[in-house]
Write a protein that binds this DNA or RNA. Structure first.
Lengths: 105, 105
DNA sequence: GCATTATATGTCTGATCCGACATAGCGGTG
DNA sequence: CACCGCTATGTCGGATCAGACATATAATGC
């Protein structure tokens, strides 16, 4: 969000913050959810890159469309294990996974 | 293992391979266990770097020495979630975690 | 507006994981 | 060798997660 929009919202009585502020996460917890979100985004990117639907991808992984949707949404019921396994299963490399963990916003 | 030692062992009737060969893992499964091993090694490195015992580290994380030992051993009962959370909890950065996933052997 | 296809959300049941405890191994030191 | 601090291993009960199913909500074409 740019500063301009932030100012306008706050002028209109909104309080603006991120997930860390809102949910009162510790920095480590915040880093963890961001990391999970980064993996979820990569999963979607890899799938779309391959030109697959969620259902097709899920089938490849021996899972279901609904679970795959939750993975891409970084749902609370989805572990980092599942995300990493799924990424590798869809053809992502360890390098890609590491890179996204280290540097993605 | 250097080629010399490998040759000697094979000459003596040993078959030499890695975990992937021995356990007949798929490449993705192998990549996953290597990734887990890399995180476990980083966890030990971070702990030792800080000059802490397993028990001290575990306490910081709200866990037990025995579980921490299993983490460092990359035990089957330890998830990547737990490893990553513990690493961040002991002060490792997302960059360190990502780097080790991307590039550690 | 109504199929059709893709994605998202809620919930159940069985599987897996986590912390804890007990205890074993192991290198130092007195 | 006996003790001590540290690490490793086995197991258990409760907590969390996985896949599946049902169903809701887009998005696209007719």
């Amino acid at each position: 969000m740019d500063q301009n929009k932030k100012d306008r919202l706050e002028g209109a009585g909104w309080r603006v913050g991120n997930a860390e502020d809102f949910l009162e996460l510790t920095p480590e917890e915040a880093a963890f959810v961001e990391l999970k979100l980064a993996l979820a985004r990569l999963l979607r990117d890899v799938r779309v890159q391959q030109g697959w639907t969620q259902a097709q991808s899920a089938k490849r992984l021996g899972s279901s469309q609904s679970r795959f949707a939750k993975m891409e949404a970084a749902d609370a019921s989805v572990s980092v294990d599942l995300l990493v396994k799924s990424l590798l299963g869809l053809g992502a490399t360890r390098e890609q996974v590491g890179e996204v963990i280290a540097r993605a916003v």
